[in-house]
C-alpha cells in the first residue's frame, strides 16, 4: 500500500517520463530491439549456409529441437538443468548463510580477515578458477584424489562418472556463488537489532529457537529476491559446465548432449558446434530457455511474494 503522505506529492503527468527516458532508451537498444530481432531469427533459417538468402521458415527450428534428430535429448537436459539451478541456488544460499552467521560472531576479533579471504571466489575471474578446479579434480593425477589416497580412500571419479560429475559441477558452482549470498546475509544479520536476541534469551529460548523465530524471518526479505534472481542466473549458466566438463562425461546414445550439459551449453553445441553457425536454431533454443526461465521466475515471484511491492 502507498503511504498516505504520498497522496500529496506532486503529480504532473509528463515529468516522470523524463526520469524514465534515459533508462528506457538504453533498455530499448540493449534488450528490447536485440530481443525482438532474436525472436524473429528463431523463425528463420539464418545460418552460415544462408547468409544472403535467409528468410522465414516458421516452426522448423523448434521442430528440430523437439522432433528432429536431436529429439529426446532436450527433455533430459532440461530436467538436469532444473536440478542444477535449484541445488546451486539453495546450496550457495545455505553455505552463504552458515558462513555469514559464523562471521557475525562479534567476539571473533579477526573476523574481517576471514571475510576478506572468503570473498575471493567472487572477485577472481571465474574462467581461471574453474580450470583450476578441473585440474584438482582429475581422478588419477588430481591432488584431491592423491590426498584422499594417502589417507586410504579409493580414487573418486570426480569428473568421469555421470553422477559424480554432476555433483562436482554443483560443488564448483556453489563455490563460485556463495560469496555473494554470504555478503547479502551478513548485511541482513547486522541489521537485526541485538535487543531482539537479548529479549529472546530472557524468555529462555535456545539458539535454534532464536534462529527460527528472529533470524530467519528478518532475513526472509533479503533472501527471496536474491534466490529468485539467483535461480534465473544459475538456470542460464554457461561457463561452469563449458569449462569444467564440456558437457561430459558422454554416454551412448548422445548425439550432442552429455551428462552435465545444461540447456545453454547444449544449445551452444547445436548452433555453433565445430564450424557450424546456425543463428536461427540458436535463437529458437534461446527463446525456449527464455520462456522457461521467464515462467519459472513468474511462478517463483508469485509463490514467494518477493515481488509484491512492485505489483501493487
Amino acid at each position: 500500500m502507498e503511504m498516505p503522505t504520498r497522496i500529496q506529492k506532486p503529480r504532473k503527468p509528463i515529468y516522470p517520463y523524463f526520469y524514465l527516458l534515459p533508462g528506457l532508451t538504453a533498455i530499448l537498444f540493449s534488450i528490447i530491439i536485440p530481443g525482438a530481432m532474436t525472436i524473429y531469427y528463431a523463425f528463420t533459417n539464418y545460418s552460415l549456409r544462408h547468409l544472403q538468402d535467409w528468410g522465414w521458415i516458421g516452426w522448423e527450428n523448434f521442430e528440430k529441437i523437439f522432433v528432429g534428430s536431436n529429439r529426446g535429448e532436450f527433455l533430459g537436459v532440461f530436467s538436469w538443468n532444473m536440478q542444477w539451478a535449484l541445488i546451486s541456488t539453495i546450496g550457495s544460499a545455505l553455505v552463504g548463510l552458515i558462513l555469514a552467521m559464523l562471521l557475525n560472531n562479534k567476539r571473533v576479533v579477526e573476523r574481517n580477515f576471514y571475510r576478506v579471504l572468503l570473498i575471493l571466489p567472487w572477485a577472481l575471474p571465474s574462467t581461471i578458477t574453474i580450470l583450476t578446479w578441473k585440474g584438482l579434480f582429475n581422478s588419477s593425477f588430481g591432488p584431491i584424489n592423491r590426498m584422499l589416497g594417502s589417507i586410504g580412500i579409493a580414487a573418486i571419479p570426480w569428473l568421469s562418472n555421470s553422477t559424480w560429475a554432476r555433483a562436482t559441477c554443483l560443488l564448483v558452482n556453489i563455490w563460485i556463488g556463495y560469496p555473494f549470498m554470504m555478503s547479502a546475509f551478513l548485511g541482513g544479520l547486522q541489521s537485526i537489532p541485538e535487543e531482539l536476541y537479548d529479549a529472546c534469551q530472557v524468555d529462555g529460548a535456545n539458539g535454534w529457537q532464536a534462529f527460527r523465530h528472529i533470524t530467519l524471518p528478518m532475513l526472509r526479505s533479503i533472501v527471496l529476491p536474491l534466490l529468485v534472481s539467483g535461480f534465473a542466473m544459475n538456470f542460464g549458466n554457461f561457463g561452469v559446465i563449458y569449462l569444467l566438463t564440456e558437457g561430459g562425461p558422454f554416454k551412448s546414445p548422445s548425439v550432442l548432449a552429455g551428462a552435465t550439459d545444461l540447456l545453454s551449453t547444449y544449445m551452444y553445441k547445436v548452433a555453433f558446434g565445430a564450424t557450424n553457425f546456425d543463428y536461427g536454431l540458436a535463437s529458437a533454443n534461446g527463446l525456449l530457455i527464455f520462456l522457461i526461465v521467464g515462467s519459472l521466475t513468474l511462478i517463483n515471484l508469485s509463490m514467494t511474494g518477493a515481488f509484491q511491492e512492485v505489483k501493487e
Binding site: S160, G248, K269
Partner: peptide, 23 residues
C-alpha cells in the same frame, strides 16, 4: 565439412567409454 559437427560427440563418447572400460 560442417557434417563434422555431428561426429564429435558420438565419437568422443565411443572413445571415452571404451578406454574407460565402460563399453
Amino acid at each position: 565439412i560442417d557434417a563434422m559437427n555431428y561426429v564429435w560427440t558420438p565419437v568422443t563418447t565411443a572413445f571415452q567409454t571404451v578406454v574407460h572400460g565402460e563399453a
